[in-house]
Design a protein around this nucleic acid. Structure first.
Length: 730
DNA sequence: CGAAAGGCTCTTTTT
DNA sequence: GAGCCTTTCG
């Protein structure tokens, strides 16, 4: 049998073998965390004969779950079947489908995403006569979400409310939950909160799960919030074999109510906890680790932790400056081209990371111009595209007629003459009679509208037609394969011509075809209950989940999404005060700290090579701004860095030097194809700044040639052949 | 009713 | 620069 322990270092081994009682694994970036988790589970099943049924592993993304499942399949092929692996949200959805009924959750519930949530908040506010200009929808929703993250229901929230704003939110929150219940819908926070509610209210249910999950493991524990922590605590309450893995330095989700105290106080909550620190990094070069450490060490309020690595020194971190975001993007594109054509780098080795999604636009445009293949990890997310959501709304309504939000979305999409007026009256009518919108339409078209005469005969007729169509589709959905049904639906509502008539019709039609592909896939994977599976699937996927390594393209990704991933070459663009750290973090020191950690996360994704890019000007929301270099840059010791154009006497083109940082100027022309001098150790060379010298050694590092040159005047320097413009002396 | 046009505001990060 | 809202007109 493959020895599970033989490939691990001492700390990792200890982490794998410590299987009883609470365990805290503090795992620095690149410390083999995923290996440890999978090996630990394999060890439980193989060596300790724990049944896979009795193991739960919580991951941060579905992708991580899938990968873990795969790796386990290799380590413990027989045993790994019945294990529970998934995100908190996916696991809770499953629990609530099975046991939610007891607290009034129908198993067919739909999951509302942020757009749906906003629509619902808006409706609630309209009903309560609140001005959406005075109270921003997103702020109200933020409050509601934060309350749910602490398991505060509307009553708890109202009770604790202090300010006038909180009182307003409390009222919206109450109404919001009523409407959610009526629509048989749960939002992301409900999935967690109501699971905890279920466990609190029904000990016998909790006990069943406690019995079952003898071993519970949670990854990315630094990013759990209070409900999640509560849930874990309850689940592991009986056996107490709770293993949490995380790294406070990588906590970047406080805005999503993640609470660092969960990991910082773990040892207090579990005094018998064993703490294991994984400090050896297997991913990055010494230079990268030193640079990352320099950035994170500045952070106060942190347990000092020193990462180390036995990997090679590697090349310096490249700092580069461009005039604006277009030039920044062009520099990235050309530099990638150079890394690929002058060395062994593949496009899939490269990731371009940024703080905000909006920054991807400039990069994309440059990449398209240069013919550089890329995949974008988010942007407007696929399942949030309007046309995709429209079709999803049809499917939801067909499965769950109580889903008012979906009904409102599609009752006039494509346009069928049911306008705003009619919908408003419908809302009033339904509310007065306590019906869902769908039921209201049924009643109105059945009985006519004799009593109140709210509707014109035309509106009654149109709504009736709509209702008949939905009823007819529902019937079809039961008998047809989902894919066939999907095609009928598109045909029936004449969606294609509707899309083609709209701006970007082609693109949007393509999105529908892509959705069709997803439907087909689900049809194959779920012979039973395809529709519910599809709807849950699309609600809970994240963008990273669909990130594939198969195609050879550059990856464009936000720093947040990059957590947990690694790439040989990483570009971080927008290293500017106001972008990273983001301007919204300026009012609170702890938020700037989080930005710092975000920067740390980005740098530590890199195995071999890091580029930190900054633009002098950047247009945001239409206007063009001049930004100062990111304050984080000056924390990186100069000896770890170099400019893309090494120290030339020539002044940077665009601005004065800042804080002695030697900026390279990203000069598009500079990246044009150049012929490299053919040199070997012993050759005499000339360098613009350092003068004459002799080549000491030549080394190939990740697609680039590194030469060590002993200069007569300037001493010994390590230079990149492709960048240093060395001339060979005959 | 709905298409089109103009004006407003805001954008961090996401399961 | 986009998305949402309001206004105007057919």
């Amino acid at each position: 049998m493959y020895d599970i322990l033989s490939s691990l270092n001492t700390a990792q081994k200890e982490a794998v073998e410590t299987i009883s009682g609470p365990v805290l694994i503090v795992a620095g970036p690149g410390s083999g965390k995923t290996r440890v988790i999978t090996h630990r589970i394999a060890y439980l099943m193989n060596a300790c004969r724990v049944s896979s049924r009795n193991v739960m592993a919580v991951t941060f993304t579905n992708k991580a779950a899938r990968e873990m499942q795969e790796r386990l399949g290799q380590l413990a092929p027989i045993a790994s079947q019945g294990i529970t692996i998934g995100t908190f949200h996916a696991i809770c959805a499953k629990i609530l489908r099975i046991d939610g009924k007891i607290i009034g959750i129908e198993p067919g519930f739909v999951i509302y995403d942020q757009n749906d949530q906003l629509a619902l908040v808006k409706r609630g506010m309209t009903e309560l006569n609140l001005d959406p200009k005075q109270y921003a929808l997103s702020a109200v929703l933020g409050q509601i979400s934060a309350a749910k993250s602490q398991t505060f229901g509307p009553k708890d929230y109202i009770q604790r409310g202090r300010s006038y704003f909180e009182e307003i939110v409390g009222r919206v929150y109450e109404r919001y939950q009523e409407m959610m219940r009526a629509s048989n819908a749960l939002d992301f926070d409900d999935l967690l909160m109501r699971t905890v509610e279920l466990f609190r209210a029904h000990k016998e249910v909790l006990e069943r799960y406690q019995e079952r999950y003898v071993h519970v493991m949670v990854d990315e524990f630094q990013d759990t919030n209070t409900v999640q922590y509560e849930m874990v605590k309850m689940l592991a309450g009986k056996h107490r074999n709770l293993c949490v893995v995380g790294d406070p330095d990588q906590s970047i989700y406080s805005w999503r109510s993640a609470d660092l105290r969960n990991i910082l106080n773990f040892e207090k909550d579990y005094p018998d906890a064993k703490t294991i620190i994984l400090a050896q990094n297997y991913r990055s070069t010494k230079t990268i680790i030193s640079a990352a450490d320099a950035i994170i060490s500045v952070s106060s309020m942190r347990k000092p932790k020193r990462l180390f690595t036995d990997n090679e020194q590697g090349v310096p971190v490249t700092l580069a400056e461009a005039y604006n975001e277009q030039e920044e993007a062009l520099f990235v594109a050309k530099e990638i081209g150079r890394l690929v054509s002058y060395g062994g780098a593949a496009l899939r080795d490269v990731a371009v990371m940024y703080r905000t999604n909006a920054q991807s636009r400039a990069i994309e445009e440059a990449f398209i111009r240069c013919g550089m293949p890329y995949k974008l990890v988010a942007g407007t997310r696929f399942y949030e595209r309007r046309e995709v959501k429209d079709i999803i709304a049809y499917l939801r309504l067909i499965l769950n007629p109580a889903d008012d939000i979906s009904l409102i979305r599609i009752i006039n999409t494509p346009p069928r003459g049911i306008g705003e007026r009619t919908v408003d009256e419908l809302l009033v009518w339904a509310k007065r009679h306590g019906f869902s919108l769908y039921d209201a339409i049924c009643k109105i078209s059945e009985l006519g509208d004799s009593e109140s005469r709210l509707f014109t005969p035309r509106a009654v007729k149109l709504m009736g037609d709509f209702q008949k169509m939905i009823a007819d589709l529902r019937q079809k959905s039961n008998s047809l394969k989902l894919l066939t049904f999907f095609d009928r639906l598109i045909e029936r509502i004449d969606f294609n011509s509707y899309l083609l008539a709209s701006p970007d019709g082609e693109d949007r039609l393509n999105n529908i075809l892509e959705l069709r592909g997803v439907v087909q896939e689900y049809d194959d994977r779920f012979p039973e209950g395809v529709l519910p599976a599809l709807l849950e699937g699309v609600a809970l996927v994240s963008d990273v989940d669909s990130l594939s390594e198969v195609t050879d393209t550059v990856t464009l990704i936000t720093l947040h999404q990059a957590k947990g991933l690694e790439f040989p070459i990483v570009f971080i663009v927008g290293m500017e005060d106001g972008i990273l750290p983001h301007i919204r973090s300026f009012d609170a020191p702890e938020q700037i700290e989080e930005e710092r950690r975000l920067c740390y996360v980005g740098i530590t994704r890199a195995k071999r090579r890091v580029y930190l890019m900054r633009a002098f000007r950047r247009s945001m929301m239409g206007a063009s701004n001049v930004n100062a270099p990111s304050r984080f840059l000056k924390d990186i010791p100069e000896e770890l860095t170099c400019g893309a154009r090494p120290w030339k006497s020539e002044k940077p083109k665009y601005h004065r030097r800042e804080r002695d940082l030697d900026w390279a100027v990203a000069d598009p022309e500079f990246c044009e194809n150049q012929s490299l001098p053919d040199v070997k150790p012993g050759d005499d060379v000339y360098h613009d700044q350092f003068g004459r010298g002799k080549i000491v050694s030549i080394n190939t590092v990740c697609g680039d040639t590194e030469v060590v040159v002993s200069f007569r005047e300037a001493g010994t320097k390590k230079l990149l052949l492709s960048l240093a413009k060395l001339e060979k002396m005959e």
